[in-house]
Design a protein around this nucleic acid. Structure first.
Length: 378
DNA sequence: AAGCTAGACAACCGCGTTCCG
DNA sequence: TCGGAACGCGGTTGTCTAGCT
């Protein structure tokens, strides 16, 4: 392994930081500010890699960091943002003042993921396990797909194997019959998350700005919804069994008016323009075009899904946000649930179609894959 | 008391992107 | 335009500690 130049010394110290080292970093930063971290160890008198110094500062020493435990409201926001944009921890952390991406990531991995799994919700897709299994059953019902259950994520596998309840397993599926820890083939579905986002990377370059736009939209909707809900989760249970919440982002007839949203935005600072300015792909008259894009996206994109899979992300995130509450058992009466479900069912079916079509292409291109699937010992 | 295990979190690693000469 | 350094990010590993047997 090749270490960065600044760390390529035998005498560089590693491991936990001492109070003295912390004091040196703090003293240095107070005098010289941050930046040029490779020079910091030498100038601050530390036997550390510059990269390590930067990490120590950003994750622990920065004065505006919170060190207390996460609040229910923060938990809610993390879950919603993760459902919308996946494991973009730095972006999620930006919406949580005083929290670092490392904090959020650790909290997700140690607490929230398990919490969701215990509730029967797949932490990767944020869908109920029963629905995921049903989806796999549908895929498995088509020819030549083999046994793909191995691409289920670890949490789902654990949940299936360890906990008979609360999952309502779909009717007996031949393709699920090999579901065991010893026969997990791996292929087709990527392990990264969220599933609908990472499915279609082959058009990534063309879709880059659209993908970014989708993520930013998702963040905006999530943060607005979070503020709009005006939840005071005095009891953490309130979050996990919440009252009706997310309204349709495309519907103006929600319980949260735009003016109300403006007023309540103060709870979580979010400046849409900050993101817009950073997107080099955006035209100068972006705001207008963005609205246009949002308006036509659903119908336009749906029309295009026959030939292309690019816009899937856009719809999925848009619809996924609306669906989220319903899927995890929330009361959906305030959302435009019918429209959402119509849309999402179309998406799911085209998603599966696209997946299978792509797999067929691959199999034609690489006939060897038609042989027995590769089983990785687990 | 000793050993083991799981949870929590700090730190590291590798890779992609950005910056700059 | 190119190449190297710096930086940022997400995934993974390491370490400490509390609880259990």
């Amino acid at each position: 392994m090749v270490r960065p130049p600044c760390c390529d010394k035998q005498n560089v110290k590693r491991g936990l930081w001492s109070a003295e080292e912390d004091a040196k970093i703090l003293e240095y930063v107070s005098k010289h500010g941050t930046g040029n971290w490779t020079a910091v160890p030498k100038r601050a008198g530390l036997r550390r890699c510059g990269k390590s110094c930067r990490l120590r500062w950003t994750n622990y020493l920065k004065p505006d960091l919170k060190h207390e435990s996460f609040t229910p409201k923060e938990e809610e926001l993390i879950v919603r943002l993760h459902a919308a944009i996946g494991s973009r921890w730095s972006i999620i952390a930006q919406e949580l003042p005083g929290r670092t991406d490392n904090d959020v990531k650790n909290y997700w991995n140690t607490k929230l993921r398990k919490k969701l799994a215990d509730m029967g919700i797949d932490p990767v897709t944020h869908k109920p396990y029963s629905q995921i299994l049903a989806d796999y059953g549908n895929i498995g019902g088509l020819p030549k797909t083999g046994i793909r259950i191995g691409s289920l994520n670890k949490d789902l596998k654990n949940a299936i194997l360890m906990k008979p309840e609360p999952f309502a397993l779909p009717p007996p599926q031949q393709r699920l019959s090999n579901l065991s820890t010893n026969s997990i083939p791996t292929m087709v579905l990527p392990k990264s998350e969220p599933t609908h986002e990472s499915m279609f990377n082959n058009n990534q370059s063309n879709n880059q700005s659209l993908d970014l736009l989708s993520q930013l939209q998702a963040i905006k909707m999530v943060t607005e919804a979070s503020n709009c809900n005006n939840h005071e989760f005095s009891n953490p249970q309130d979050f996990w069994n919440p009252k009706p919440t997310l309204s349709s982002p495309s519907s103006s007839s929600s319980t949260c008016t735009s003016s109300a949203m403006q007023q309540e935005k103060s709870a979580i600072a979010f400046n849409w323009n900050d993101f817009l300015l950073e997107d080099e792909f955006l035209p100068s008259n972006y705001p207008q075009e963005q609205e246009t894009m949002v308006e036509f996206s659903s119908s336009e994109i749906l029309n295009q899904t026959q030939n292309t899979i690019i816009p899937e992300t856009h719809i999925q995130i848009e619809a996924g946000l609306q669906e989220y509450n319903g899927e995890i058992g929330m009361d959906n009466t305030l959302s435009s649930s019918n429209e959402v479900h119509d849309l999402s069912s179309s998406c799911e079916s085209s998603f599966v179609d696209a997946l299978l079509a792509r797999e067929d292409e691959i199999l034609l291109e690489f006939p060897d894959l038609l042989e027995e699937p590769v089983y990785y010992g687990l």
